[in-house]
Nucleic acid binder design. Structure first.
Lengths: 247, 247
DNA sequence: ACCTGAACACCGTTCAAGT
DNA sequence: ACCTGAACACCGTTCAAGT
């Protein structure tokens, strides 16, 4: 989406595939992993089929043969790939709460490995196809063990999936691609000003020390460089405690 | 993002501004509200400066004079506009839990009025500037009333903001713009197949009745046409109960 | 079956020029 | 001060053609 004022040189191109594949050598897995590399490199906004193709050394239209569905179809495949190792083992299900807790932390760890995939999973219904059914079944099993049934089970399930995705999506929300430093500076001073306004925002002013730079809305880096670890732990603990109590 | 195979006719153009503004009549508010209309109509992917300009009857480059920052800058303004009436009144803060509950429900209501703004608020660090500081201060006040202090206050605040945004972002996650009907059909039958696989996904199969079409990953409509009301209620109740208990 | 190559209808942004 | 107008470097997708 950032176009026109940024010429991408050939020299900056991806070296994902070190050599151009021969005819018939290009596989679906190659395309998807090159796409993940492109996402890691350029973010969701910057992600383009043409760049993926360029990184493999092939024409844009060649991708379509291996991965139908165009840009969104390819991103859905990438989502699957990132989600592949999130689901905890079955045997951890002896304790339903521990299993769900493991799920939350594993989801976050996966997104930390591929920060730009967070908005993909958190904000695109299309890529929800990327969520493994084993994960779905695991959540349901855990909630049944907790005592949830029928309509309440569905509600609990929806709450769990949303909770899993929610914090991390916001934590890793992408910064603007262009002029990152200038944007950060502008935001930092804006926060500094707001935080010192004791009459309008007293609670904010009282707690500025603890908040500036490490709280949503009041930060100028995303969760990649400034993780909100302890906030996430409280979030998970509170949610799980509430889930146990609400039955 | 959906380009090339969909010609947008002049006749389908926005009627936001019924007549072309005279020179000097174009205001910042006009641009931002036209942009919101464009977002409502075309979604975040389809949102384009050129369409906004077209809907006002002005050249794309004219927008820049009133709203600097290009596409992302304009979207940040739109985010502010949508968030403007979310923050509950101060006097509801007698009960901190009721205030936070009101906040959650008001946020969801605002996003239901503008479903395509949900991914904007939930997944873009840029648009976090759109969150009113009164909201921030209100959350802090509520958490102080609950007994949260210092580092724990910051963690609680982060948890609250994430919880506010999390469910709704996923609930209203956009469907693919192109071929919506075909996509929904494909997904529906995919869900039907998965749900009947009793050996691989027993918990899923047991509860298929309650889940198909109204649970994350297992649905083919977004929250605009198929809201997940009761799931949201449980989510909020569980989170708030946990927040109270974790101190 | 698998990929090239050209064409099409879009983008956001930049810069010079008009009033 | 406010906007037009042309140009530039990108997009995703479609379709015909090659091997």
């Amino acid at each position: 989406m950032t176009r026109g004022y940024l010429q991408v040189h050939w020299s900056a191109m991806a070296k994902t595939a070190s050599r151009k594949p021969q005819r018939g050598e290009l596989t679906r897995e190659m395309v998807v992993s090159a796409a993940l590399a492109c996402l890691d490199r350029s973010g969701l906004e910057g992600f383009s089929l043409r760049e993926v193709a360029r990184s493999i050394g092939v024409f844009p239209t060649a991708l379509r043969w291996h991965v139908p569905g165009g840009r969104n179809g390819l991103l859905a495949e990438v989502a699957s790939l990132v989600m592949a190792e999130v689901t905890p083992d079955r045997d951890a299900a002896a304790d339903w709460r521990a299993w769900l807790e493991a799920l939350f932390f594993r989801y976050r760890a996966a997104m930390q490995r591929h920060p730009n995939a967070a908005s993909l999973l958190g904000a695109q219904l299309v890529s929800n196809g990327g969520v493994p059914m084993a994960l779905v079944d695991g959540v349901l099993t855990a909630l049944e063990a907790a005592g949830y049934r029928e309509g309440a089970l569905r509600d609990g399930y929806n709450a769990v999936i949303a909770a899993m995705v929610g914090f991390v999506t916001l934590e890793l929300a992408p910064e603007p691609a262009e002029d990152q430093a200038g944007w950060a500076d502008a935001l930092r001073s804006r926060v500094a000003n707001t935080v010192s306004d004791e009459t309008r925002y007293p609670a904010l002013a009282r707690n500025a020390r603890w908040l500036s730079g490490s709280a949503f809305v009041l930060r100028w880096e995303n969760g990649r460089s400034a993780p909100l670890e302890s906030g996430f732990r409280l979030y998970v603990a509170a949610f799980l405690a509430g889930l146990a109590a609400k039955l």
